[in-house]
Design a protein around this nucleic acid. Structure first.
Lengths: 268, 268
DNA sequence: AAAATTGGAGAGCGGTGCTCTTGCTTTTGG
DNA sequence: CCAAAAGCAAGAGCACCGCTCTCCAATTTT
């Protein structure tokens, strides 16, 4: 969209990118607290004050990195979904679900500092500017799309759990209208809960809460992801809680089979 | 245990407590990043260098606050369990479960900065010294004890989900030997997952991920907590048999939406 | 009472985010 | 084509930070 307006403009985007790159490098090396504008400037061979031409404050730099991180994990999730469809055109919903969860988790363990930036404590003063909400939704939307596709395919069962309390139903209804009007309200509520719970497990792993508790983190995560899929109503091929009808009999051989069918990567 | 050994010793514990108190106050006001040794010292009317007689570094002060926070949320959970038993001597397991979850959640909502300290991103360089693991386990142990009591009462059902993968089974077996040998291994695994998932939902609420997504946070949390209880194998009264509402909704008036750290600047 | 330990205060070091002023270069427009 | 405008880099400087070191007073111990 932007033609080469001039050397100046081109230099600007290049330098901006270089700053973000170096900042991201420092963030990976010393953590969010160790991100220093002066150090970035030093590494780039420019005066610290010159940096303020590109980012009006340290928090703005951090916000840029936050958006990039949201986009990175969102892209990873979307790409994983596309990859499983490419590899296996009629993949089971649960496999698509697990692929998305796995992608988020793998990105998180591969980029712990970036992950901490977006799913850890809000770092600066910082009250999530509007620019972050779209990138932040991408993983959630990928999960929603898995459920939506299962629904259109007619294989989406009843989510587990009790009937919704009134206010929760209202929230879920509002969300449904926004992003998937065809899905049952209870599925929407279950999706939101599952979304949070997936990241709960990821956070515990990345933030060290599983130290000396869970060693087989990959398998543990997959197990939980499958359980969450069932909670949402995706057919998991296993005996399910409370006799949820399993729409079609495709998966008879999974009874003793691998926990995760079809091509989801093992731990590492 | 320590008799009054002298004015000096008594002054030491008093000053130590005062430092932690003021530090906690500042943490609540300006967030973890805004905790400044100099400011604490200033507020206490002493030289900043004198503070180092009590805490050898800022990180040590933070560690002390972290331990206090773990103890506080752990105590809240244990106290909630005791309270529900006191109020209702033969409480349903699911009610005891939800009480523990609720206590953790309510504490987190009421102390967002302390919560961020312990369940957010690991703040400094910081590699969780051994002193923190015991306090950090208290909430988890409360959840285990609910399951254990249900088991001894003979009302613990099968946890939902597929059979465990081998490595997960190994982890769960080791944990079972440590803290509840009588519980089925699958229950242990489900407990660990539920533990992480509870805090996933709490973190999403406290860290603002639910902004503009979930408004009825209390009800939503209760719903998820019940679902997790079922996942562990606690009887939840069936899917629709009894419309027993959720125990209590106590803290519904946590108006402040952005729980985020004290605004350094109002953005712009 | 003397000696040893402990706590407090100040100065100072190197670092930080950020602002302001001063020049220089590129872009713009008549 | 050249002057005005706008954008950019650099330096100095402010207020703050964590932390160390030295010096001195008060307390404990011997």
């Amino acid at each position: 969209m932007s033609a080469i307006r001039g050397a100046r403009e081109r230099a600007r985007v290049e330098i901006t990118a270089a700053i973000k790159e170096e900042a991201s490098r420092q963030l990976g090396a010393h953590g969010p607290a160790g991100l220093s504008l002066r150090a970035v400037a030093r590494e780039l061979g420019m005066a610290s004050s010159a940096l303020y031409r590109y980012f009006p404050s340290r928090d703005d730099l951090l916000t840029a990195l936050i958006i990039d991180a949201y986009d990175a994990v969102g892209a990873a999730a979307e790409e994983a979904l596309a990859a499983v469809d490419r590899r296996q055109p009629a993949a089971e919903p649960v496999d698509r679900w697990v692929a998305v969860c796995r992608a988020a988790r793998d990105w998180a363990v591969g980029h712990p500092h970036e992950y901490a930036l977006i799913y850890g404590s809000p770092v600066p003063g910082y009250s999530a500017p509007q620019d972050t909400v779209a990138p932040a939704s991408r993983v959630g939307l990928a999960l929603v799309s898995v459920a939506r596709d299962a629904h259109t395919a007619g294989v989406l069962g009843e989510p587990t759990g009790r009937p919704l309390a009134g206010p929760v139903r209202a929230d879920a209804g509002r969300l449904a209208a926004e992003l998937a009007p065809e899905l049952p309200i209870r599925v929407i509520a279950a999706l939101v809960a599952a979304w949070a719970q997936v990241f709960g497990i990821v956070s515990f792993e990345v933030f060290g809460q599983f130290n000396r508790v869970v060693e087989a983190r990959g398998e543990f995560f997959d197990q939980a992801a499958v359980a969450l899929a069932a909670q949402v109503g995706l057919p998991t091929g296993g005996e399910d809680s409370r006799g949820t009808p399993i729409p079609e009999g495709a998966a008879a051989e999974e009874a003793a089979g691998p926990v995760v069918a079809g091509g989801v990567l093992p731990a590492k």
